[in-house]
Design a protein around this nucleic acid. Structure first.
Length: 853
RNA sequence: GCGGACGUGGCGAAAUGGUAUACGCAGCAGACUUAAAAUCUGCUUCCCGACAGGGAGUGCGGGUUCAAGUCCCGCCGUCCGCACCA
């Protein structure tokens, strides 16, 4: 019994593909292109099996489309800037550049061992000046176009990483990476004006019909468009006014208070003369976003000394609060509260004893009696207690108030978005330098294009906290390029989402002297199939969509949407172990005591915890090299594709990978020790075959058809199941029948070609063993014989009163009468009918005969 | 709280409204073997039954239909995303 020698074969075929340069892509306008891209990895060290699910799927798509005749671009690169490199530098006294390039070298070999069809001539690493110089130029272009700007803003300060986090990167008040509690600080920051494309980014989601609905919805919610009005409330006894944004201008007459964000200009200025308010604001800052999550229900306000005048009724005044739940970054940083028709406002009003004035009457209620209890009324109704609005519906009242406010110049109808501009400044070393210079005379000036790139200095130390660029002895000191005054460079670097926002364009012409060759980009773009984790559903994908538009506006390319098709794959989960101290343990750290109870080295009880995403911190990673050494790349690829639907999470199990390994060997035996003697490759199929052999041929062609369909629809697990079914059937071939060898060859060849995108090395070896000179990587995708792919004989179910009572065999597309007759002839059916005529018979051709007794 | 997804054997999971549990994992029994591994064969939703067969069955309760895992209404549960968004 021969075992499949994956070690020899995988190396052999990988070098054969290399020598033939099989996977180098060349733009060719005469051929249809297909750009398949997996989200490029951060070179964190070593790959584990969880990382490669994504690449296995991408490679399957690339090989499948290639076989279908597309000119495929399938590149790979490295998202090489980022904080872990600096952390490693601090922890291990190794330079980030060295740490990164060593990781890249390791991971490149790992990926190559997986046998993926990457065009390595296009490999990029974003930390190379030849890459990042182009984004420095882009930034200068954005600056000139008004798409980049600098302003002071409240930022989330991560004290562990010494860096600023975007709001999106703060999770439960903690840094999304470090987990440190985030503080608030005021800092001058560079921003990209993503909000200039609010409407477009939202509207174009509708056109992304090959994106998962879920991702589109998440982006829609993230952009968060809401229609409403800006309303001006004058402040009593002063010339000032507070601008408020509301989505419910129709409830303006129900206003009973104003609430300002603690960071609102007015709140800040009031605090100067009000120590208690200053303390309240400080408290809000201290709580930050962290405890707010814990005390989600705790809405607190501070009543200031001032009052606001109702914009439509100068005789009414409402108190002005500073409240911990009003966001400075959304709307105008101030709201009016209408407790009767907003639950949060109602809670606030009850807490501070404020008036609750209902102004929307629910259908069928008596205006004289209607009162609000514990629940605000937020549905549609008819305006009342509202002067000129009385009798109008909510929608009508919104419009009427808007018109009145506009006429009085006390406000206007407007649209607010939740989306905020993208802060791109990071106080870090290992990132792309922001190409500006701070001149004492000229102010902030761009670095002249001829001076690009601004390269990171290599000679830095990590022996002190903070940004090494800041304390570098010479790097930041330059003469102003415009007036020659002694000046300093910007020491902030870009958010690493900057690099990943255009790398897919760079791949189109990875060695071009410009960011990307326009003709190449216009040939290859957009990406036809992008594949990555759903964790990037909002940030990376939204930034890339914005960036592409920004480049379009700056004349780089005529393209708005970079990714025509998107697939988000599930995570790979693995069992975890935790001891009684809730520390994660490696499997090898777990033993058992004499009672069979699992324990750790210190004798603490160990429990098998829930399945978790593979991660170093949970100590449940399965090393890719171990798996490839033990089972080979094809086995790993098969398992990653076969066990769960691709969009769902996959549980990694030892027995599962074992099962895939068994199947690899079974396939190999099928060609190395065929069940019937195979005629030479290319032999004609004999004419007269036994029915069992014809059935086998039918199954072969049907499998080609269904697998093709499954691959088109990303149903890889189903495709594997179909191929296994065919394998099972081929194993049972009646080998003694005349023509069995020819039928077996046809079946085996189909299997070999169908597994080509999944297990490429094995497929090549099988194909060669079957006597083919051509590589399967260059062979076309099989096409089923349509006549054979359809059954000529079908099994039709027979139901009586909705219950299955038997089956009948009929020729395909048999007449309804014939089916009916055969069904009624079944003894079971006759018995149940008991001689009576059926009330009704429903015949669905080729499927079912349903008899109603 | 809002939005979304999901709920099927011991487990991962299949199933254009038409034979529920394909394919695989695990388990059990057997063959081969000195033995083990590997491989092969058979069984494996539950209940009754020796078999034949019968009954129940896709989280729960209703409904539409000749026919519902699938469609509709109402619950329950799990997971994910967002969250003082005015």
């Amino acid at each position: 019994m021969s075992r499949y020698n994956f070690r020899e074969n995988e190396a052999k075929w990988q070098s054969a593909w290399n020598e033939r340069r099989s996977f180098e892509a060349h733009a060719d306008p005469a051929r249809p292109k297909y750009y398949v891209l997996e989200m490029f990895p951060y070179p964190s060290g070593k790959l584990h099996v969880g990382h490669v699910r994504n690449y296995t799927m991408g490679d399957l798509v690339a090989r499948y489309r290639r076989a279908q005749g597309y000119n495929v671009l399938h590149p790979m690169g490295w998202d090489a800037f980022g904080l872990p490199a600096e952390n490693a530098a601090i922890a291990g006294n190794v330079h980030p550049a060295i740490w990164t390039s060593e990781n890249i070298a390791t991971m490149r070999v790992q990926l190559q061992r997986m046998g993926c069809t990457y065009d390595w001539t296009r490999e990029i690493a974003t930390c190379h000046p030849e890459y990042y110089r182009h984004e420095q130029k882009m930034f200068l272009d954005f600056l000139a176009a008004g798409l980049a700007y600098r302003r002071e803003s409240w930022v989330n300060w991560d004290p562990a990483e010494n860096t600023v986090l975007a709001n999106e990167q703060v999770i439960d008040g903690r840094g999304w990476r470090s987990g440190a509690i985030v503080e608030k600080r005021l800092l001058a920051q560079w921003f990209l004006r993503i909000t200039a494309f609010n409407e477009e980014l939202l509207d174009a989601l509708k056109t992304l019909d090959r994106w998962p609905e879920r991702v589109r919805l998440m982006q829609e919610n993230w952009i968060g468009r809401s229609e409403g009005a800006r309303v001006q409330f004058p402040i009593g006894g002063s010339a000032e006014a507070v601008d408020v944004f509301t989505t419910r201008p129709d409830t303006l007459y129900g206003a009973s208070f104003l609430a300002l964000s603690p960071h609102h200009r007015l709140a800040q200025s009031l605090a100067k003369d009000d120590p208690a308010l200053a303390e309240f604001i400080a408290e809000c800052d201290r709580l930050g976003t962290s405890e707010a999550a814990i005390e989600a229900a705790e809405k607190r306000g501070y009543r200031t000394a001032i009052e606001a005048i109702h914009p439509l009724d100068a005789s009414r005044r409402v108190p002005v609060y500073v409240a911990n739940f009003v966001l400075m970054e959304y709307g105008t940083g101030a709201i009016f509260g209408c407790p009767a028709h907003d639950q949060r406002d109602l809670d606030f009003a009850r807490k501070y004893g404020l008036a609750v004035i209902p102004v929307v009457l629910p259908p069928g209620e008596d205006p004289a009696r209607f009162a609000i209890g514990d629940t605000a009324y937020v549905e549609d109704g008819v305006a009342f207690n509202s002067d000129f609005l009385d009798g109008l519906s909510v929608a009508e009242a919104k419009r009427a108030v808007g018109e009145r406010l506009e006429k009085l110049q006390r406000g206007e109808r407007t649209v607010a978005y939740r989306l905020r501009d993208w802060g791109v400044s990071r106080q870090r070393y290992w990132g792309c330098p922001i190409p500006v210079i701070h001149c004492p005379d000229c102010g902030i000036v761009p670095v002249p294009e001829d001076d690009l790139p601004v390269e990171l200095p290599q000679d830095v130390t990590f022996d002190q906290p903070g940004n090494p660029l800041d304390r570098h002895p010479t790097w930041k000191h330059v003469a102003c390029p415009y007036c020659n005054s002694p000046s300093t460079r910007e020491t902030d670097t870009f958010d690493t989402f900057f690099e990943s926002s255009w790398y897919f364009l760079r791949f189109c012409s990875a060695r071009a002297p410009v960011a990307f060759d326009r003709a190449a980009a216009e040939y290859w773009m957009p990406v036809d199939q992008y594949i990555g984790g759903v964790e990037h559903a909002v940030l990376h994908l939204l930034y890339s969509r914005f960036f592409t538009r920004a480049l379009q506006r700056c004349g780089y390319i005529d393209l708005a949407e970079p990714f025509a098709g998107l697939f988000t794959q599930g995570m790979v989960l693995h069992q975890t172990y935790q001891n009684s101290a809730e520390e994660w343990l490696f499997p090898k750290e777990v033993g058992a005591d004499s009672d069979g109870q699992l324990t750790d080295a210190a004798g603490r009880a160990v429990t098998i915890s829930r399945l978790e995403k593979m991660s170093k911190s949970k100590k449940n990673v399965v090393d890719l090299d171990d798996i490839v050494d033990t089972y080979g790349a094809d086995t790993a690829r098969l398992y990653l594709l076969s066990d769960s639907p691709p969009e769902r999470d996959l549980e990694w199990t030892e027995s599962g990978i074992d099962g895939s390994w068994r199947y690899v060997n079974r396939l190999w035996r099928m060609v190395s020790e065929p069940a019937a003697e195979l005629p030479p490759a290319g032999s004609a199929m004999p004419r007269d075959l036994a029915p069992a052999l014809i059935a086998l041929r039918r199954l072969t062609h049907k499998t080609i058809a269904t697998v093709t369909d499954d691959l088109d629809k990303f149903r890889f697990n189903r495709a594997v199941a179909r191929i296994r079914e065919l394998t099972n059937a081929l194993d049972d071939i009646p080998a003694a029948e005349p023509g069995a060898g020819a039928v077996l060859r046809e079946g085996i060849e189909a299997v070999t070609r169908l597994i080509g995108p999944m297990m490429p090395h094995l497929a090549e070896e099988m194909w060669q063993t079957l006597g083919h000179a051509e590589a399967i990587a260059d062979a076309p995708w099989p096409v089923p014989d349509p006549e054979l792919a359809r059954d000529d004989q079908v099994t039709v179910a027979v139901q009586v009163n909705g219950k299955l009572r038997g089956t009948i065999e009929l020729p395909r597309d048999a007449a309804a009468a014939e089916a009916e007759e055969a069904a009624l002839a079944l003894p079971q059916v006759a018995r149940l009918l008991d001689g009576k005529a059926p009330k009704k018979i429903v015949v669905v051709p080729n499927r079912i005969v349903s008899v109603v007794a």
